[in-house]
Design a protein around this nucleic acid. Sequence first.
DNA 1: CTGAGGCAAAGTGTATACATCGATTGCAGC
DNA 2: GCTGCAATCGATGTATACACTTTGCCTCAG
Lengths: 234, 234
Amino acid sequence: MRAVIELREKIVSGEIPGGTRLFEVTMAESLNISRTPVREAMSRLAEEGLLDRARGGGFIVRTFGFADVIDAIELRGVLEGTAARLAAERGADPEALTGIRATVAALDKCFGVTPQDVDFDGYSELNAKFHRQLADLAGSETIRREIDRATRLPFASPSAFLPDKADIDAFRRSLTIAQEQHRELVAAIAAREGARAEAIAREHARSARRNLDYVMIEDRSLIPRMPGLALLAS
Amino acid sequence: MRAVIELREKIVSGEIPGGTRLFEVTMAESLNISRTPVREAMSRLAEEGLLDRARGGGFIVRTFGFADVIDAIELRGVLEGTAARLAAERGADPEALTGIRATVAALDKCFGVTPQDVDFDGYSELNAKFHRQLADLAGSETIRREIDRATRLPFASPSAFLPDKADIDAFRRSLTIAQEQHRELVAAIAAREGARAEAIAREHARSARRNLDYVMIEDRSLIPRMPGLALLAS
DNA sequence: CTGAGGCAAAGTGTATACATCGATTGCAGC
DNA sequence: GCTGCAATCGATGTATACACTTTGCCTCAG
């Protein structure tokens, strides 16, 4: 089990670059374990989407570029949008609605009196909770699973591009906008406005893309500080 | 390798019902192989979505109901819709467009002069090709993979509810409508009409749902003839 | 009688030896 | 010199023995 964690870390940190073929014996020696758990670990990481099965057996580290980050964000928006739309169309469970409203209220409390005063750790955690609750809101195991899968890649998670210290004004502003979207998204679902709920969820995902664009265009020195961008090629 | 195929068959045929916990030793004995390839096989079937990993190790056969079929169809519509929209918005590769147009033309030739005269095998094969080409059209590996994944479950494939003999009028009619959607979908993408392309792709997936509804409401005796419905619970 | 703790059995996790498959390289024959 | 076949090396596939974890039941104590 430890093998999974160590191997995953080596991949997401970029220590093992994309395209590398992983040999069982080599990996087993470097981790000081036998081939069997290595195979098991690789199999699991293939499930996660970090590895591809090579033809004729074996595994290859997947290569990710910025286009993949963009598409992963777009995909998350589409899937969360579907969850929101279905929740609106089919009617969300009242208890679940109450729960997600509570999360929105808790997120409100992360904002202080001044724009500078934001509880980032609290926001990040509650944001993750909000998105988990959203995925559940449609009551569809199929949708929930798919969101979970699409979200598993390090740069595709809803909290991937939340600023860790958020000393950038543009980032800080994005939090306020995102929270407004949280609120309106829940309102749209409760009002059974499926199309609107879907549109908001899609747009909401794009805030991650805006932050990504900022990092890429305005201040590339932030790239190393973004967990999940380390494994990108080039 | 043979283990994967045999085990998969036992699951999709319903021989091993959902919720069953699979024990490595038992399975190994029943397949006359050792535990190692059994583990490997289960791991792969977990990737396919047929098995879930149980807490404390081991695997459990996933349980599917009709709600899962509905949601899988909806999901395919959403993902294919996204592929279509992105292809329209970003501009599809001209060669790829030519290729998918050729498939549409070939599909046309499956329809004879009378409504009764349809080449079902040819249609089925070309239909699968069309959907493969559609998934590729956006030029996004991320999208293509996700469509591939969502489509892998036996009841979620684009050809899942094509009538094998199609002796039902309603089914035959659906083919004509579906082909019209193929044509308009390509036209919308070529015209860079993203929203329309997305809408058509979603609606197109719903034809599978219409066929499913027919089977469920009008003539349940057809259920065993639908490959991929055998593994459903209840 | 109930609850907790330990013991036993079953099942998975791991290590390792052996088999098999594929590719690459070298040799021989044309 | 080129082509084809064969052999060898390296990698994954398979079998099996052993270790460890977990779970369920039974017993003993409160």
